[in-house]
Amino acid sequence: MGVNKELSMLAERACEAALAAGRVITSYTAGQVVVHYKEGGDSLASQVVTEVDEQSQAAILEVLAPTLASHDLALLTEELADDGSRFEKDYFWCIDPMDGTLPFTQGKPGYAVAIALIRRDGEPMIGVVYDPVRERLYRAVAGQGLWINEDKWRPPLAESAGDCFYFYVDCTFESDSLRDVMTAQMQGLAQRMGYARSVIEVHGGAVSSACHVLETPPSAYIKPPKPELGGGSFWDFGATACIFQEAGAYARDYAGQRLELNSATHAFFNHCGVCFCSDPALAERVQAELRVIS
């Protein structure tokens, strides 16, 4: 079997797994869920975990576990310990059973299932995201394009320059000690790029925020570098990195470098930050402004 056919088949399994996880998530309401806390980054969003995360993961692994042996794949998932096999196998599944657990527990949108297949060198080959609130299934395969539900991706028309620029930020933005500074920086950035106004959308998890960037141009999702541990991990950005790649959009770190999605030296992105933009030309302007701010 050729690589393209094999990737297509694995993408179908990932879609099946994501939809199964979505059914688990939608069977719960926020009030039914007991919240626990785990070791993670410095933010509450990176420490919250629920039985829904765990059952969502179980639903995903029920579908994908057989592919570990049949295709000699490794596994990295947020709710299990990293066994290091991602450095030994040619490819590994990278799974976030429910990105945006915090907004889920608050009864707010902004959560999604994310499944990526990543090559050992860190290149994302498959990206699948399911948003159970909007019932949108994103499916991207390297070199094969992006589909949302049954439709092949077509970029939406951006609002004309001089109108509005959208910034998407995580649900923890409101409690961030640098919120006011970052707000002023984003507003100034939009003005210097020629937009009459800017809107800051406090949205939820990294996965959901990135998907909204793709579908609401001109827009960006940015997470500046910071000294504290956190800033998202491989499972937060693996699937959307592939989706953005196939959409012709932009997903890089804060300095414009390739996202390291299989590093042996870090599991989080606080050291380098991230920048997702709705198109590469726009990203060049955003990155230039970010360098000035930094």
Rank of each mutant, 00 (worst) to 15 (best):
E201I: 13
E159P: 00
P156S: 07
Y221A: 12
F173H: 14
I118C: 08
A206M: 08
T216R: 14
C171K: 05
K152I: 07
W147V: 04
E135S: 10
A161Q: 09
C171A: 15
H203M: 09
D151H: 06
V141F: 01
E159M: 08
I222E: 02
E159H: 03
T183G: 01
E123W: 02
T183Y: 00
A220R: 05
Q191L: 11
E123P: 00
Q185M: 14
R120I: 11
V181M: 09
Y138V: 03
S219W: 02
S177T: 05
V199M: 13
A140Y: 00
V169P: 01
V128M: 09
C164Y: 00
Y168C: 08
M186A: 10
T183D: 03
S177V: 06
A220Q: 08
D121I: 05
G205H: 11
E174D: 13
S175C: 11
P156Q: 06
W147S: 11
D151G: 01
P217R: 13
R136D: 08
N149C: 10
S160H: 03
Y168F: 15
V181D: 09
A158I: 04
P124M: 09
F173L: 08
V202Y: 08
R134I: 04
R136M: 12
L178G: 05
D151L: 06
A206P: 03
N149Y: 07
H203C: 09
F167N: 03
V199N: 05
D151E: 15
A161R: 11
S160P: 03
P132I: 15
I148E: 06
F173M: 08
E215M: 14
W153G: 04
A196C: 10
Y138R: 00
Y195I: 05
Y138K: 01
S177G: 07
Q187K: 14
V213M: 08
F165M: 15
E174P: 00
G143Q: 04
F173N: 10
E174Q: 15
R134D: 15
D151V: 06
R154T: 13
P155D: 07
W153D: 05
Q187F: 07
M125V: 12
Y138I: 02
G188H: 02
D176Y: 09
D131Y: 05
G205W: 07
E150L: 03
R197T: 13
F173D: 10
E201N: 12
Y168K: 07
V202M: 12
R179K: 15
V128L: 11
P155W: 02
N149A: 13
L214I: 13
D151A: 15
A184K: 11
M186C: 12
Y221L: 12
R192L: 02
Q185F: 03
A220K: 03
Y138F: 15
V213G: 04
G204M: 09
S208T: 11
P218A: 15
R119N: 04
P124Q: 10
L157A: 14
R197M: 14
Q191D: 06
D170G: 15
V202S: 11
A210F: 06
